[in-house]
Design a protein around this nucleic acid. Structure first.
Lengths: 331, 331
DNA sequence: CTGAAAGCGCTTACAG
DNA sequence: CTGAAAGCGCTTACAG
């Protein structure tokens, strides 16, 4: 049998399509026994409204577009987990749009707009402030609500959910300084991520406050590459503490340190960012600054639902709390 | 300005909507100068077809539904990476549908059908064969193409892309047997995943062939839980090799083994499955059976595009090759 | 509380 | 090669 339509339901229930539609969308406007009769037929026929037709007629698709760069990154998929759970609650569907580096951002966003999503969640920790404003302009122009998640932007008019990465970098560094470490390195990425730049800024601030020299060592997130870097690192550098901008970088560094005869945390204290599974699978286990990535996703989706439904929001810039999880790699 | 529609383009170009539509969908059917005039107007007005309207009229949404359980699992997000890349190539959009344990599978699938996707990719390594057939029946009934990815099913009529997990388990075990290990444990999950059951079957076959006693130790994927299990493990068990059904389980076991004074690989050889980043971030680095998760996603999406376009496919059951990556944790 | 009718923005035979 | 018209399956004022 072909899928039942609103027509077949209307005929079987002896009412007009308008009434069937109301039963679905404004049940309180339909008399009780009419409503029940229609509901019964709907169940019997296994009728499900065609969401595409509904989308065209109502101009609401109950779909949000989620823009990502690399879905395989743990932080991205965690965020998607939070987004997906909240979307399920609020009955929104999720469309994924991957924008790769070689693609034109403007063009891609315009394409997403043509997909008629009700709102957009933009996840990207590499986006420059200028880019953010470009994207913002197109979406504003098309009058489509949006939230940036895990994005760094100063703009007061941009809805954004994130954590205070500068403060996080500051606090984690202070922790090591309090342990009387002097030669504290920040292991950052060669590639520029705006979130990492914030961590760097916080690190520098803490070091300078303590009149210590900030030393940033740039490497790759790729383990096979950074192992090489770290091996040569120990040949000539004095170091008694290190912070990796990601847990995986910190763990990779730890492994090479141990192989070079250093004891952790006695000789070198090590800490990471994000408190991923890497942190509990290292030996010793890694101290890490917990970034509530799942929550960033969930909260930004929640904020977006409010914006899509013109609900009042007191604050469009939300900074979630972070905290340090102390484990064996520091004192 | 409001979004341009096909009407406004038609008027501005002095043609009918049918012609504009043809320029977009069957350009070869339009005379060249007409086509160019229309194309010029399209560019000027920044016209983008409304995909919802197109979907309703053509009954093709160029959207595929991807069904997942837990997106935060590394294997799932890797697969999504492959799916997303191929989808981009073939111009399909992706809608994500998370089906949690407490949800009714049949009902969820029916809901997805009502979303009018052109095809469905079902990722799930926990699905029983019966469930697979339930899902299959609904989709067949609605005449919607589908591919199961990383799913174990014997049914010959079900399009599925996966690897031969039984053989993988067999080969990895043989590797350790060849190194003269006798007390080889398989560290599996307490929770039943069909893929893990296959690994177990392969492990058992290899052990029995070598007249060794198969010993399966069940634990949790959660590190804090399995650390406890592993700690008591060493109190009473004789062991000279272990295979974790996931890299993370193998690494967790390795850490506890070392803390209990065992040398890896001298006293205990250890191997894992999936060749994730965990395998290169452990100390020593972990031998692992590589599962081409990204490729499983990519190939299943490719297969789905063929099914959606009624192209001939020689084989609807695809088994991708796997291989063992030898590292420091085994000889 | 309910129905008739227009309309959402497209595609697709059917004519010409 | 092009246009007029019907139709995709809904929603939504507008009447009554």
């Amino acid at each position: 049998m072909p899928q039942a339509t609103i027509y077949s339901v209307a005929i079987a229930a002896g009412v007009s399509l308008a009434t069937v539609s109301r039963v679905l969308n404004n049940p309180e406007k339909v008399k009780e026994d009419t409503r029940e009769r229609v509901l019964k037929v709907i169940k019997e026929l296994g009728y499900r409204p065609n969401v595409i037709a509904r989308g065209l007629a109502s101009r609401k698709t109950t779909t949000v577009g989620v823009v990502i760069s690399d879905i395989t990154r743990a932080s991205v998929s965690e965020m998607l987990g939070g987004i997906s759970d909240i979307a399920l609650n609020y009955q929104y569907s999720i469309k994924i749009f991957a924008i790769h580096e070689d693609m034109d951002v403007i063009d891609s966003v315009q394409k997403i707009v043509s997909e008629q999503v009700d709102g957009i969640l933009y996840l990207n920790d590499e986006l420059s402030d200028k880019r953010v404003l470009d994207v913002k302009r197109i979406l504003d122009q098309n009058n489509i609500p949006y939230v940036f998640a895990n994005v760094v932007t100063e703009d007061e008019q941009t809805p954004v959910v994130s954590i205070d990465y500068e403060k996080a970098g500051y606090e984690l560094t202070k922790e090591l300084i309090a342990d009387h470490r002097k030669d504290i390195y920040l292991l950052s990425t060669a590639r520029r991520y705006t979130v990492n730049e914030k961590k760097e800024a916080g690190y520098i601030r803490a070091m300078e406050e303590a009149t210590l020299e900030p030393k940033i060592f740039r490497t790759s997130g790729d383990t096979t590459v950074n192992r090489q870097h770290f091996s040569s690192f120990f040949a000539d550098k004095k170091v008694d503490a290190a912070i990796g901008v990601r847990d995986s970088i910190a763990v990779s560094f730890m492994n090479i340190a141990v192989q070079n005869g250093r004891e952790v945390p006695k000789d070198i204290a090590i800490a990471g960012f994000q408190n991923t599974k890497y942190a509990t699978l290292s030996r010793p286990m890694l101290t890490s600054l917990d970034i509530p990535v799942y929550d960033i996703g969930a909260v930004s989706m929640r904020l977006l639902t409010k914006l899509m439904n013109d609900q009042e929001v007191e604050n469009i810039r939300i900074s979630l709390p972070h905290f340090i999880v102390k484990r064996e790699s520091t004192n």
